[in-house]
Design a protein around this nucleic acid. Structure first.
Lengths: 190, 190
DNA sequence: CGTTTTTGCTAGCAGTGCTAGGAACGAGAT
DNA sequence: ATCTCGTTCCTAGCACTGCTAGCAAAAACG
């Protein structure tokens, strides 16, 4: 049995190696640079090895996305708990979300614009996804009023997401970003 | 001079043929089906002809996007002017925007998610782009208050855009779409 | 040490966007 | 009516993509 467990351990280690390499490569050179050949060279194995771990490139990106959700969840939580009141908490979470999208665009894309294989708004969604969504939900809970909390959170999230994607694709002037964010917060915090 | 003008006319005709074929192919089978080979076959010319008209595939998509903006601008205008009051107008414009994104997803992607070569938030933006944005602006003008109108419009647009992209990538449950839209409108119309 | 199983490589497929080169065509001149 | 010259447009090909079949080498077992 020892030999079997060692093999499984090595497999999971290499799987993490792949995901990490993919994330680092994407973050430093963008997803266009993450080709299966390049990624294989990075982990010092041949291409087909990737396919013995993941169904395809999309599945690798999905794994990266889940890692990213854990990251953003932690950052949102930190922002929320450090704030002094509900209003400040919502503003802080919004700012943290925007900062994450700006600072790690490739990761953000994997999470919220590209890969689709992941179950999102269902009970089977990976825990990190739920955690990230949960942080947004807790931040906006004080302002729910008569609205359904989940639905309200989804709507607020959409606002943030639209803001970041449109700005990052140069469809919105970067200069006014803070003003837009402030307007969004003001319309949801009351 | 006649011979020269005839040639130019034929050129612009073929250019329109390319853009129309690209749009129809994208709308019926998605952008993945729009390869340069497939598009060339559709217009019954060879591939290189495309490159004598457009710098590359992205430029073709940009041309399609501009057409799409003219379309959505007309639909938004119709929705806005048919409504009876400011509140109804904003709701109608929001619903029309969402309906457009749902009904013509490929076109929507070309306009607001994919191609980037287009100048957007600048004076040099193609008129159809400004027209579409202008419709959103006029719809929300009555609710601007102290906020800068342009910035507010951008924020509202972001909300709509986020709603549609997240739903279309199955990150939001389709069932609650109407509720989310209602919440967004309610937060911006007051 | 020999056999069997597992592992991971080389080589290749079908497809992508894009481009160089030459052939065929139409326009103007003799 | 024929010849020359430009333009137009096609054939063929490049470098690249994600992905896979089939075999060689390595590891585990008796």
């Amino acid at each position: 049995m020892s030999i079997q467990t060692r093999r499984e351990r090595e497999r999971t280690e290499r799987e993490r190696l792949i995901v990490t390499a993919a994330r680092e490569l994407a973050e430093s050179e963008g997803w266009d640079a993450v080709t299966t050949r390049r990624l294989a060279a990075e982990i010092e194995y041949s291409q087909p090895v990737l396919y013995s771990h993941f169904k395809g490139k999309d599945a690798i990106m999905a794994a990266v996305a889940v890692e990213g959700c854990a990251d953003i969840a932690a950052e949102l939580r930190a922002a929320r708990t450090a704030a002094s009141g509900p209003q400040q908490a919502l503003a802080a979470v919004g700012a943290a979300y925007a900062a994450f999208a700006e600072r790690r665009p490739a990761l953000y894309d994997a999470m919220f614009t590209l890969a689709v294989d992941l179950p999102f708004a269902t009970p089977e969604a990976p825990p990190p996804l739920k955690a990230a969504f949960g942080e947004l939900r807790e931040a906006i809970r004080p302002f729910a009023g008569d609205d359904n909390l989940e639905t309200l959170t989804e709507t607020f999230w959409s606002g943030l997401h639209g803001l970041m994607t449109l700005m990052r694709s140069s469809r919105l002037r970067r200069a006014d970003h803070d003003k837009r964010l402030a307007i969004l917060i003001s319309r949801f915090a009351r």
